[in-house]
Design a protein around this nucleic acid. Structure first.
Lengths: 221, 221
DNA sequence: ACGCTGATTTCGTGATCACAATTTTCCATG
DNA sequence: CATGGAAAATTGTGATCACGAAATCAGCGT
């Protein structure tokens, strides 16, 4: 594979993206966006083939993702997406309920109108995904709505931690959202946007917390 | 499934521990306990040799640890322990200040006297490490003091997240503790123990928060 | 003494392979 | 028709290798 020939003048702004990175990002997105159900089995050779690489980068990606809780390794090394117990789901939800209000609060001071408008647009796409009953698109836009806000918090470590929590919840969220097909958009997104416009810290924290906890508690029924 | 019959002479109680796991655990402990200064360079071949394995398990361990923020990969793939900016240190400290009071509070309901006694003993060892001005032993016993409490919270995901934060801070804590050799044990451990004995949730949360923030703020001078 | 350039060494990456263990398949037996 | 177990296919593990890129070093010139 004459890779250097095929990449004559690499656009300097973007990294060349190693094989491992492509596989990692691809798998990570599939998992976080709920494209895989809980308990879905994967193989290193299969992953490698679907990304056009050998086992080696596939294995590294799997190790990395399993370290983040996005994949489960059985005792014999078999790879599956995690099947979370109810206890674990509740714990992850409570972590979200702890981190997200904090991130929102930090972002509030730096949020300007352009940001809120952008979130509004994303929220529309989210509502559309609900109408289409498209779980993957719903999860994707929902996460993008939150991440757009949290990026303004300028707290990369905290956001990174939160993303690993989202990652762990990906397959479970898919299962829950496909099981009971919801027909109404998450109601608290409006409250979040209002609190942002008003610059009301307490209201924003509350809206974020209830959005997270209600969203998951509503599904555990 | 008569697997136990077919198994030759494996010690049943402990997993065989794959090469990758041994390397991962070994490196992780070195980093978390502050045995390596910030910016310390590592090589895959060197890691492999020091653990008696080939590059492959070494590489997987490094990938995993870098995913957790315990190691930094340069653009060319070079491996070093992270050199944290002051901003990053503050952010990680505020994450600790967010998670640790929550974990402590959850543990409080389940904490019995034997646990507090154990923490007392660990705290003595911690004070001894201060007198000996032994940074590694100080960090180790300090973390063990906290972890002993948080294990009772029965919140493995939250504790896991916290440990990755500790991991990221390992080399920096070593640098800080060796730079200014402190001569007095952390004063808030007493407050933590008192709050535990009194069953006072608010006091425990406060003591944990100040222990975390003061501990790091005291060193940034 | 200092800086630059070219050679050499070191290093990470990704592919491939042998091997052992597991899982699956399939057929014979009750 | 179910069931048990042997054979075959599949899978993860770890070692090794070639390759290109990066870092280190040597030697030269200024």
């Amino acid at each position: 594979m004459p890779k250097s020939v095929l990449r004559p003048t690499v656009p300097a702004e973007s990294a060349p993206l190693s094989a491992h990175d492509r596989v990692y990002r691809g798998l990570r997105q599939q998992i976080m966006h709920g494209e895989l159900p809980p308990g879905h089995a994967l193989t290193l050779r299969g992953i490698g083939k679907s990304f056009g690489v050998s086992m080696t980068p596939a294995r590294e990606s799997v190790r990395r993702l399993s370290a983040e809780g996005a994949l489960t390794l059985s005792a014999s090394g078999r790879v599956t997406t995690p099947e979370l117990s109810n206890e674990r789901i509740e714990e992850l939800a409570s972590i979200r309920a702890l981190l997200e209000p904090e991130l929102g609060s930090r972002a509030l001071r730096r949020a300007h109108l352009a940001l809120i408008d952008r979130m509004d647009i994303i929220n529309d796409a989210n509502a559309r995904a609900v109408n289409q009953q498209n779980p993957v698109e719903y999860i994707r836009t929902n996460l993008e709505f939150h991440r757009t806000l949290y990026l303004r918090a300028q707290s990369p470590a905290m956001l990174g931690l939160l993303e690993t929590v989202w990652l762990q919840l990906g397959p479970t969220m898919r299962a829950l959202y496909t099981r009971l097909r919801r027909t109404t958009a998450p109601p608290h997104h409006r409250l979040i946007l209002e609190a942002l416009r008003a610059g009301d810290d307490a209201a924003l924290r509350l809206a974020l917390r209830t959005d997270v906890t209600q969203g998951l508690r509503h599904l555990q029924a």
